[in-house]
Write a protein that binds this DNA or RNA. Structure first.
Lengths: 150, 150
DNA sequence: GGTTTGTAGTTGCACTTGCAACTATATGCA
DNA sequence: TGCATATAGTTGCAAGTGCAACTACAAACC
């Protein structure tokens, strides 16, 4: 199996992908901080737990969805729990694991973060692309995401 | 000025953008580590300094190109310098700054990293998109990159 | 049942990053 | 010239991250 070299266009796509995502990421992080709000990683976890509703989510499920490594997530949840934004509940079906549930305060924080996050996305994406282009971008990126989305 | 909310498609584009870039980033980092090679951030800096050739680059220029914050870059260059992959040269035109120059060894490391990095890009991008799609993706992302590219 | 192997999650340690403060030089302006 | 302000880069400290080792439970196998 020989090492395949990427085309010029693939290199351009990749470098721009990285650039765009870090630029916007930094910008949104800054907006959040300016508003005294927590970082994006908190949002990512909270939103998943929120979607799971009263069922809650196992840590490994959150890990899969957010792409955060488990050890990292373990400590992030420590922080969220300390702020009472989520709570850990011992899992009846699997004695090894926890169920993570969002609290009222957690939902509240989500609500306060979203306007900032959302307007960052709006400006970053729709500020320079037409609606059809946004759709096309979303479709192209869909093809690129490997494995367990959803 | 009211807070603009993003469209569903914009949200999808953004979440997939983040997902794709982190997935591939993680994958390439792992490949590099498996080969006993340094992390991607080293490559990013080295390639910029390499492109600048014997002119060298100021740290703030590298910072602009790579989006690494200056304090971070300062210490990254410490590490690169310790490994003799770059060298700092006091700048004659501006007594505050350094010129960063790549060394033979630095160029050598770039050469060893590229096959791994390149094949990661190839698989990650061209593994699931047709050539026209890659081009289209690159063009859409070009429109999204704000400011000082080059 | 007991033993091996796998998975969920946590923790210690080293390293990296962010933040704010700091030094040093450059630039603008009276 | 002399002073105020801005920029380049570094550093101390706190916080976050990766890695590998570890505990605890589960599942498969005998």
């Amino acid at each position: 199996m020989t090492t395949q070299r990427p085309s010029e266009n693939a290199i351009a796509a990749w470098t721009r992908l990285v650039r765009v995502s870090t630029q916007l990421h930094v910008k949104i992080e800054q907006s959040l901080k300016n508003q005294g709000l927590p970082p994006l990683s908190w949002y990512d976890v909270l939103i998943e737990v929120h979607r799971a509703g009263s069922e809650g989510l196992r840590q490994f499920e959150i890990s899969n969805k957010t792409l955060l490594p488990k050890h990292n997530l373990s400590r992030l949840i420590d922080r969220l729990e300390k702020e009472k934004l989520v709570r850990r509940q011992t899992c009846s079906e699997d004695g090894r694991g926890n169920l993570i549930l969002i609290t009222e305060e957690g939902t509240e924080v989500l609500k306060r973060m979203w306007p900032v996050y959302g307007s960052g996305i709006h400006e970053g994406i729709e500020g320079s692309l037409e609606p059809e282009e946004v759709l096309m971008l979303a479709e192209l990126l869909e093809k690129l995401t490997t494995g367990s989305r959803k």
